[in-house]
Simulated assay, not measured.
Amino acid sequence: MTYWNKIKKWITKGDDIHLKDYSEAKLNWGGESAKFYLHLDDFKVGELTFKNDKWSFQYSEEFKTTSNNLNLIIGFPDVNKVYLSQELWPFFKIRIPGLKQPMVREILIKENIEDNNQVKLLKRFGKRSISNPYELDVVS
């Protein structure tokens, strides 16, 4: 259970906040990490990771050797660069659907996904996008 969910539970139940619960919740705060592979059919294009509250993207070695025959992804013009950002890039962010859609809200509630947790949202909804042919696979 995340920190904010515990706070909500304590407030609604009127329970006292126990130091043990707070410590456990605090350990989960900001410690999330994830790795995704970006594919075009069976071809690995690159790797997106989230670690230490930062996103990174880099092209795969396979892509680097054949990049002359393929289009580069918008926003990532240098095949040799490791891109770093505090924010998820628009190329990946568009894979997360509108969070006010009733069906999406239902999934978020059912699966206990916070609507501000882009890592979990991307894991849940990010595999395919109607805006491009790439697939994003969760590795960890």
Results as ranks from 00 to 15, higher is better:
25 A>T: 12
101 Q>E: 13
24 E>L: 11
98 G>H: 11
103 M>S: 15
46 G>L: 10
72 L>W: 00
127 K>V: 06
123 K>P: 02
115 D>N: 12
87 E>W: 00
117 N>V: 08
127 K>M: 08
57 F>P: 04
75 G>C: 12
133 P>Q: 08
110 K>T: 02
5 N>H: 06
102 P>I: 10
131 S>A: 11
104 V>R: 02
97 P>A: 08
18 H>Y: 13
127 K>H: 07
130 I>M: 02
50 F>A: 01
40 L>D: 08
4 W>P: 10
96 I>D: 09
5 N>L: 09
84 L>Y: 14
110 K>R: 14
22 Y>E: 05
134 Y>W: 06
47 E>S: 12
18 H>K: 14
125 F>H: 03
26 K>P: 08
103 M>K: 15
61 E>C: 03
80 N>Y: 11
62 E>N: 04
83 Y>G: 03
59 Y>W: 12
69 N>G: 01
34 A>H: 05
43 F>R: 10
59 Y>H: 02
90 P>D: 12
98 G>T: 09
58 Q>R: 14
24 E>G: 00
114 E>Y: 04
30 G>Q: 08
68 N>F: 11
95 R>A: 05
10 W>K: 05
111 E>Y: 13
4 W>D: 15
98 G>K: 13
52 N>K: 12
41 D>H: 12
109 I>R: 08
4 W>A: 14
29 W>R: 12
100 K>D: 06
21 D>F: 05
9 K>G: 04
59 Y>C: 12
38 L>M: 10
75 G>K: 03
89 W>Q: 09
87 E>C: 01
116 N>T: 11
4 W>L: 15
115 D>R: 03
60 S>F: 07
44 K>A: 09
88 L>G: 00
41 D>K: 15
3 Y>D: 03
107 I>D: 13
58 Q>S: 13
44 K>F: 01
67 S>D: 03
57 F>H: 00
113 I>F: 03
122 L>P: 00
80 N>T: 03
48 L>I: 05
130 I>H: 02
107 I>E: 12
83 Y>M: 06
6 K>G: 04
3 Y>L: 15
116 N>H: 09
117 N>C: 08
6 K>P: 01
31 G>T: 13
108 L>W: 06
61 E>G: 12
110 K>A: 08
130 I>F: 04
69 N>Q: 14
105 R>F: 06
117 N>Q: 07
16 D>L: 14
